[in-house]
């Protein structure tokens, strides 16, 4: 009986190989790259924390609570980047049946949800002293569209869980990811035109940023750090998903082999 451990593996199954010396080297290199990326992300988050608490000036009106701004806004930006990856990955799957695209979408959806939740929690901490939990203020355009975003991608993960695993799940999830993303600006504008409050544009305000240069620098450093962190998390999730796919493929390959060795000669 031929096994997956045989010295001359089937070239079609080369990517499933995890036991040979070459595979060992490949996995170690992957590990090193991910570790380096993680270390870089952690270091830049620490640098961002330093910028936020030590370098950036205190807000004259709001006091220390305004320092929430740096992580709050950048978490939202990172979430949007992640969900854009879900859309891109889903489109790649629908267009070219790219399983890698689907894997990226899977990885980014989870990370995007984490960052949306973070943006929400930070927003609540900030809103408590400034808006004082007035319900007419908490449902403004940006909060509503972000809440919709959260629910849509939670639904995306539910579709993945309840659909038939494999291609059907990938196909249906891609549709949810793309249609959901189209809906978000629509929600945003519909709320903005009929009921609203969130602060207007600050960073990309017409006529230059409405922030002192020190705050802007801290904001930019935090943005780089948060995006690096999000990218690292997506890379780690991608690797987990790739391993899971490999495991399934190997199980199928092993069963086929077993059937072949017991079948008629």
């Amino acid at each position: 009986m031929r096994s997956l451990r045989s010295s001359a593996p089937d070239p079609n199954l080369a990517h499933l190989d995890t036991n040979s010396l070459a595979a060992d080297r490949r996995i170690r290199a992957e590990d090193r790259r991910l570790n380096a990326l993680t270390a870089l992300a952690l270091a830049s988050m620490l640098a961002a924390a330093g910028m936020i608490f030590l370098y950036a000036p205190q807000d004259a009106l709001q006091g220390p609570v305004q320092r929430v701004f740096y992580l709050h806004v950048n978490s939202a930006i990172a979430a949007y980047v992640c969900f854009a990856m879900v859309v891109g990955g889903g489109a790649a799957y629908l267009w070219k049946e790219s399983v890698r695209g689907d894997r990226l979408a899977r990885a980014a959806a989870t990370v995007g949800l984490v960052f949306t939740t973070n943006a929400f929690v930070m927003g609540m901490i900030w809103a408590k002293p400034i808006w004082n939990w007035d319900p007419s203020k908490t449902w403004d355009a940006r909060v509503t569209s972000t809440a919709v975003l959260w629910v849509v991608y939670a639904g995306y993960l539910l579709v993945r869980r309840f659909a038939t695993p494999g291609r059907p799940a990938m196909r249906l999830a891609a549709v949810v990811g793309i249609v959901g993303f189209v809906d978000v600006p629509v929600v945003h504008f519909s709320v903005q035109w009929w009921r609203t409050l969130h602060p207007g544009r600050v960073i990309d305000a017409p006529g230059g940023p409405a922030l002192p240069p020190e705050m802007l620098l801290a904001f930019m450093v935090t943005m780089v750090a948060v995006l690096l962190l999000a990218g690292t998390l997506v890379a780690i999730r991608y690797r987990i998903e790739a391993r899971r796919d490999q495991l399934e493929e190997r199980a199928v390959a092993a069963q086929l082999e077993l059937a072949a060795s017991h079948g008629p000669r």
């Binding site: 919709v148 849509v152 639904g155 539910l158 009929w194």
Partner: peptide
């Protein structure tokens, strides 16, 4: 279970406007 979870957030613009 899935239909309300998917459709309700997507319908929000119609309910708002």
């Amino acid at each position: 279970l899935l239909l309300p979870v998917l459709a309700l957030p997507i319908w929000v613009p119609f309910v708002v406007v």
